[in-house]
Structure formats: C-alpha cells, structure tokens
Amino acid sequence: MDGFDASAHYTQAPEDDKPSLLVLILDTNPFAWSKLHPTLPLPRAVASILLFLNAHLAFSHANRVAVIAAHTKEAVFLYPSTHPSTNSETSVTDDSTQSSNNDPLRDANKYRQFRIVEDEVQASFRRLMASTTPDMLAGTNETMMAGALSLALAYINRLSLASEDPASGGATGGNRTANGTRDADVTSMNARILVLSVSGDLSTQYVSMMNSIFAAQRKKIPIDICKIAGETVFLQQASDATRGIYMQLQHPGSLLQYLMVCFLSFEMF
C-alpha cells in the first residue's frame, strides 16, 4: 500500500543548505587596538574570532573560512596562509614534525579542522606582529581596508571559479581539507565578507573602496560590518549597498556574544 507513496517524507525543501564561505577581515591597526586595550585586549579579540570561526565551520562540513588582516601598510592572508613555513607544518597530514611538537592526546581533544585554522591563524598573526617594527609605524595611521576587501573578493572569485572547474580545484587551497570533498561541494557556494573594523576612513582609499563595494554588489556578496571602534562612512555604505549588517558595538568587551548572535547566521530567517 505504501509501496508507491513518494510523498511519505516530510520535507521542507532544504534549499538553503548551500555551503558558505566566510571571509573575515580583521583590522589590525596597532594604534586603534592600543586605545581599545582596557576594554578589549587584542589577544582576547583574536580568541573570540577563532571561536566564532569554529562555530561557522561547525555549521556544516562544507563551510569554509578565510582570514585577512588589514594592517597598516599591507593586507595579508592569515588563513589560508601563503607563508611556506606554515604550509609545511600544517598541510602535510602525517609528517613527523607535527607529532613531535604536538602531544597526540592534546590533538584528540580538538576537531582537526578547527585546530588547523587556529594554529595557522595564530602563527601567521604572530609573524605579522613580529614583522611590525616601531619604525614602520612612525608617521602612519592607516589601515589597508580597501586592499583587504579586494583580496577578499579576489579570493571568493577564485574559489567560485575553482568550483566550476574541478580540475583546478586542488590547486587553490592545498591545505584546506584533506577530506577531498571540496570538488563536490563547492559547486554552489554562498560567500560573505565580515569586517571587524576598529579605525576610521581614509579619503585616499575612496576610489578603490567604492570599486570593491560595487564588485561585491554585483557578485551579490554581502559585506557585514562589526564596528568595534572609530567611525567609518565608507563601511556603512559598503554594508548598505551589499545588504549586509552594520553593527556598532555598545560593549566591545562582549565581542564574542555579538559575533555569535548577530554575525553567524548566513540567511536571515
């Protein structure tokens, strides 16, 4: 009797279950962070961000993250890192260097994907901070926000191209997952940019900023802004034009809660 019943399952068309790619841009302007230190020290902010990234990854097996630091003079990828030394540390799955400096029992307490992201973000962050000398900072107070946005858009574009052509998929993020499922599941991916901003606008970046905003608008990539300190009109425009979320934090100390409640959900229900 129920042999032919095709409607037995109770489905609600899970069309929103596309994997999503989150590109997080962290404003690492040292001046702004030193001002913020009493309420939100940078290490704590980084810890909150890592936890937030883990939560994003926990949402779905196929979810991806990327982290970009918008520093004073440059915008660099924190994850996936292009630095050769971290690649050899984290990408090879069964190398001996890793097991020698990591206690296997410690590894057993953490989901591997989380650990890879965390280790790499922390390592490249440390490297970025070590390379920032007081001389370099003298006389500047800028943040390469426009550069970071372009990097993020370029990265998203590259991943979506890779998904259309599985043959080149392996070349894009060699150290992503060793599970090898990427070819099958990046085919239709939602992408989104989240900016954690602590500093103000720079009028010199206006043109490139607007270009990025228009590109994002065209590609339907929302730019969410989590404004921890400072004032930016550009970023307000960015989130408005791309239908992202703009939020000025009232209590920067509870960054984690803001991130978990407001910035995690991809679609608004």
């Binding site: 936890l51 296997p104 057993a108 307490n109 953490k110 989901y111 591997r112 965390e118």
Partner: peptide
C-alpha cells in the same frame, strides 16, 4: 568542542 579544551579525547587519538 568549539574551544578544544578538556581532556576527553573524543576526537580520536592519532
């Protein structure tokens, strides 16, 4: 699970 703390080894001991 998210923070990776504790001493449970539930993610398998490599």
């Amino acid at each position: 699970a998210l923070t990776g703390g504790g001493d449970h080894h539930s993610f398998g001991v490599p």
